Simulated assay, not measured.
Amino acid sequence: MKNAIAAQFAGIALISALSVATANAALINVSVSGPGKAAAEAAEAQFFSYLTASATETFEGFTAASDSTGQSPVINTSVGSFEQLVAGDNGSAACNDDGFSCTAGLAVLNAATSPFGGRFPMPDETGNKNWLDSMDSREMKFSIAGMYKAVGFYITDPNDVGGIFDIILEDQSAVTYNLNDIFTGAQPNGAAYYLGFISDVAIASLAFRSNHDNDGFGIDNVTIGKVPEPGTLALMGLGLMGIGFLRRRAQ
């Protein structure tokens, strides 16, 4: 079943998608900031304003990888685990330069160790140097630690090659919601955004999919949070424009 429900209000956030397909479907708000550091940081501040409690992984406690020995199929963090589900495979392309490999898994990188020019830490502040890199994975999954209804994070350099970037959200009942073409087409190299997801049921995981095996991205300052009850989403008033289709299907 497909639904496209879009509403535009006054506000700084840019995109909202709500699913009300059936009585047992989750109500999900998806916000995507405008491109650029300032817009992304403003969107993070707005996202935090809806939370009653939160935990954030900055990746500063990790040692940045300098070659493929620092990569891993699964990287466990304070907010959950990140897993490479489908590797990129570009032979001598960027993720294989400087001793890195597309197929060796994910990595925590910083500017000194990264083979990629368009990815960087966010927010732009002193002491924030590391980020989690997809290493050009075609598919990567973030499994959330605990029962949380809100997830937010910075993403840098997404979708600058393939033109399609999808996120598959799964709730704690194993119901999935497909958010297709998040950025509505290819983006310029080095773009920065903040993405926020708030649901009326606990979120179990987010899977990130790219349609190109040379189209990676970086993720930073990943926040999981709790929101007020009841009716949080109905009262949020995020001034956003609609995003394509949010499709609900049972596992």
Rank of each mutant, 00 (worst) to 15 (best):
V108M: 10
E229L: 14
V108L: 12
M236H: 07
P228A: 11
A234M: 15
V201C: 07
Q251Y: 11
N110D: 14
Y148I: 06
L14D: 13
F59D: 02
M122W: 05
F153V: 04
G239N: 10
Q187R: 07
G99I: 02
F208S: 00
E41I: 05
M1L: 12
C95Y: 03
A45W: 09
A38S: 14
R138T: 14
G118V: 00
P158N: 04
T176I: 13
N130G: 05
E125V: 15
D160N: 14
A192C: 09
I224N: 02
Y177Q: 05
L235R: 15
A191Y: 01
Y50M: 10
P230L: 11
N90G: 15
F47V: 07
M140Y: 10
V222M: 13
G11Y: 04
A202F: 15
L85R: 07
D220W: 00
L169G: 03
T103G: 12
F82I: 07
L85A: 06
N159G: 04
G231S: 10
I168V: 12
L109I: 05
T184R: 05
E125Q: 14
H212S: 13
V222S: 02
M135Y: 05
V74E: 09
F9E: 10
V108C: 12
D215I: 01
G225I: 11
P158V: 02
G231V: 09
E139A: 14
G11L: 04
E57C: 05
P228M: 08
S78Y: 09
A145H: 12
A112L: 06
D157H: 04
D171I: 11
A64K: 06
K226D: 07
G231C: 04
Q8N: 12
T156K: 00
A6D: 12
M140N: 05
D67N: 15
F208R: 01
I28Q: 03
Y50D: 06
A145F: 15
A87Y: 06
Q251R: 13
A186T: 10
M241Q: 11
S137C: 13
K141P: 02
V161T: 14
G196K: 02
A107F: 01
S49A: 08
T69V: 13
I203K: 01
A87L: 04
A7H: 11
S143A: 15
V201K: 13
G225S: 11
S31R: 10
D67G: 08
F142S: 01
T156R: 00
K37T: 15
M135W: 05
A4C: 08
K141S: 14
L240G: 11
F116C: 02
A104N: 07
I12F: 08
L27C: 11
F217M: 01
L240F: 09
G218M: 00
C95M: 10
E57L: 09
D213M: 07
S199V: 06
A250L: 12
A26F: 08
E83P: 01
L195M: 12
P121N: 03
N29K: 09
F245E: 11
D200P: 04
A45F: 08
F153M: 11
Y177G: 03
D181N: 15
G239F: 03
